[in-house]
Amino acid sequence: MNPTPVQELTDEELDAYIRTRLRQAGVDIGVLPADDPDAPADQRGILEGARRFLRSTPPAILGFEPDVQLVAPALYPAALGATLGDGGDG
């Protein structure tokens, strides 16, 4: 059975996932107002942003499949260019 594409998950399903993940990490957004446009942050806005992120970013990343034998994961691509060629005087 193929899993349901994340884009087809309902807001309620994603909200349940988000709240569970945050609870697992010990992060409580329940201290924010539920829905208050005048507040610096509210639960409605945080959940909306998280749903948008989940529907787009993880699928895009996992859908891209580079050759793992040829490309290493690199945290600092440019800074790792620490090697001077012959004759370099720095």
Binding site: I61, F64, P66, V71, A72, P73, A74, L75, P77
Partner: peptide, 8 residues
């Protein structure tokens, strides 16, 4: 995977 993409 994202870090690998940076290298690529």
């Amino acid at each position: 995977r994202g870090q690998r993409a940076k290298m690529l």
